[in-house]
Amino acid sequence: MRVNACAIFDLDGTLTDSREGIVRSLVHALEQLDRPLPNDAALERCIGPPLRQVFVDLLQSDDGELIERAITTYRQRYATVGYRENRVYEGIPEALAELQEAGLRLFIATSKPLDYARPIISEQGLGSYFEELYGASLDGTLSHKRDLLAKLIAEQHPQLSRSVMVGDRKYDIEGAREVGLPCLAVRWGFGDADELAAARPAAQCDEPVELAGTICAILGG
């Protein structure tokens, strides 16, 4: 595998199971705003999109002031407690080590703000696997996967024909396609089978133990 072959990973639902911290923080925000709570399935579907879009959908409102209040309230809990309610999926460290040994450059591109993504990666012991971490700003800049990937490509100059995005939601697949990358969809995250099939990824992966082999197969070596 050539040195400039790359695998670019989403974070939530791909490397770590972040459901508990995100859902509890969403519930906290909605309760503080005295808004009705959706069911668990609806809350889980909120894991992946940019946070502002999540609250536009949950609150059924485009009132900018209300959305900002919701985000601030969410972050009051998430920044102190929620980001720690997280665990690495079994088999992920081994898969990352195997990809490193194969000579791939590894990156993260997440819609989560860097202020939260960096401590998560550090506390979960994943930092040594990745060359760089790309994430959103707290003001929402770079919260769309297309923009994150465009920035990564401009700065890191990966060989696109030897690079792949890895994620669990349609946002990963669509964002990768917009910048000319194939996407491997993982099926242990938060995107259901219908969503992933409709988004048309390059391939799908059922378990982390299959991850390194599937990535290498997509990249042709």
Results as ranks from 00 to 15, higher is better:
Ala70Arg: 07
Cys216Ser: 08
Leu104Asn: 03
Leu99Arg: 04
Lys151Ala: 02
Pro36His: 12
Tyr116Asp: 09
Asp57Met: 13
Val3Gly: 05
Gln53Ser: 09
Val3Asn: 13
Ala154His: 06
Ala199Phe: 13
Ala41Val: 14
Asp139Ala: 10
Ala97Cys: 10
His28Asp: 10
Ser143Met: 09
Gln156Glu: 14
Leu99Ile: 01
Tyr78Leu: 06
Arg77Ala: 09
Gly13Glu: 12
Val56Ile: 14
Glu44Cys: 12
Ser128His: 09
Ala41Ser: 14
Gly13Met: 02
Ser111Asn: 08
Asp168His: 02
Ala193Tyr: 00
Gly167Cys: 09
Gly180Asn: 04
Phe9Arg: 10
Tyr116Asn: 10
Glu31Asn: 11
Arg162Asp: 01
Val209Gln: 12
Ser137Ile: 03
Glu123Asp: 14
Glu31Met: 04
Tyr83Met: 11
Arg35Ala: 07
Arg146Ser: 10
Gly175Pro: 05
Asp62Ile: 10
Val88Cys: 08
Val27Tyr: 00
Glu20Gly: 03
Cys205Phe: 11
Tyr74Cys: 05
Phe107Lys: 04
Phe55Glu: 08
Gly140Asn: 11
Asp206Glu: 14
Leu133Cys: 12
Ala198Asp: 14
Asn4Trp: 06
Ala202Leu: 06
Arg75Cys: 01
Ser163Phe: 06
Arg77Leu: 15
Phe190Ser: 07
Arg35Trp: 11
Gly127Pro: 00
His144Phe: 13
Val179Cys: 05
Pro49Cys: 04
Cys46Met: 13
Gly191Arg: 14
Leu15His: 05
Phe55Thr: 00
Arg169Ala: 07
Arg19Ser: 13
Leu196Ile: 15
Leu66Tyr: 04
Asp139Lys: 01
Ile121Phe: 01
Val166Asn: 07
Arg187Gln: 12
Leu152Glu: 02
Ala97Asp: 11
Leu96Trp: 01
Ala29Asp: 03
Gly21Asn: 06
Thr110Cys: 03
Gly135Glu: 08
Ile71Gln: 06
Glu207Lys: 06
Cys216Leu: 14
Leu160Thr: 01
Ala5Leu: 06
Glu155His: 12
Asp17Trp: 07
Ala136Asn: 05
Pro36Met: 13
Glu65Trp: 04
Thr16Gly: 02
Glu85Pro: 11
Ala5Ile: 00
Arg146Asp: 09
Cys46Arg: 07
Arg177Tyr: 04
Glu131Val: 03
Val88Lys: 12
Glu94Lys: 06
Arg118Gln: 08
Ile218Met: 10
Asp10Leu: 03
Asp206Met: 08
His144Glu: 09
Pro36Glu: 08
Leu160Met: 10
Val54Ser: 13
Phe9Ser: 12
Glu68Pro: 00
Tyr78Asp: 12
Arg35Leu: 00
Arg169Asp: 01
Arg177Asp: 05
Glu98Leu: 13
Leu219Arg: 12
Pro38Val: 02
Ala154Tyr: 09
Leu219Gln: 06
Arg84Asn: 03
Val54Lys: 14
Val56Glu: 11
Glu178Leu: 12
Asp10Tyr: 03
Thr72Ala: 11
Lys112Tyr: 05
Ile173Ser: 03
Glu68Lys: 02
Leu59Trp: 04
Lys151Phe: 07
Ala97Phe: 04
Ile92His: 11
Leu149Lys: 12
Arg2Met: 15
Gln60Lys: 15
Ser122Gly: 07
Asp172Ala: 04
Ala29Phe: 00
Val3Trp: 05
Gly135Tyr: 06
Tyr83Pro: 07
Gln32Gly: 15
Leu138Asn: 11
Ile215Leu: 02
Val3Arg: 15
Asp40Met: 15
Glu210Cys: 08
Tyr116Glu: 13
Gln204Ile: 12
Leu181Arg: 02
